[in-house]
Amino acid sequence: MKSGFTPPIGKILQINGQCISLIGNDIDTDRIIPARFLKCVNFDSLGESVFEDDRKTLKGSHPFDLEKNKNATILIVNSNFGCGSSREHAPQALMRWGIKGIIGESFADIFYSNCVAIGIPCFTLPKKSIQQIQKYIDQKFLYLEINLKNSLVKSKDLNFTLEIKESSRKMFLSGEWDATSTLLKNKNLIENKFNDLPYLKFNNHFF
């Protein structure tokens, strides 16, 4: 785990950093953080266990173990990344290892919303572009500057326009990705809904 981890707070306008590539489709959250590490009551020590089993199998040659990647912050993945379990421990482990943004062909639904909820923007690109980036990283160091305002990504050699859900982009730009305070603003509407829902009238007290 990187020392001095601080979670993101407020508006996220820009992500700059070195890229790390992880090749494979359908990489599930059990692989990102195996279930035995879920035996915890906080997320603090998850960073060091990210991809634990895959890393052990590859004995030092996993991208997350390579010396050249130790300061990487932008993860490049293929399709259906983060499928499986809803464990937020998966993006929390990635974030605590040092990942601040992810670019992939596609993401599983719950993983994607967990990333939004903890302040990790996930962008998509077509398969060909992802493969081009992954090939590039294989040869050279890739540093990207991602601007969330226009979704443009810049580097020395590569230029792409990233895709991101408009609702997510707006939440990162306004800082409302940390949704609790936004949701709390509608206190009266929530009370009204509670009083109006038909089934709460015949289920008003469970016990």
């Binding site: 809803s86 937020e88 719950i110 919303s113 967990n114 909820a117 949701l183 929530i190």
Partner: peptide, 21 residues
């Protein structure tokens, strides 16, 4: 019915609502 992550569990506990597309 759908699965949510821990931050959304927090939101449901605090507000009985979540933000979702």
């Amino acid at each position: 019915a759908f699965g949510i992550g821990t931050s959304q569990v927090r939101d449901v506990l605090a507000t009985q609502t979540i933000a979702m597309n």
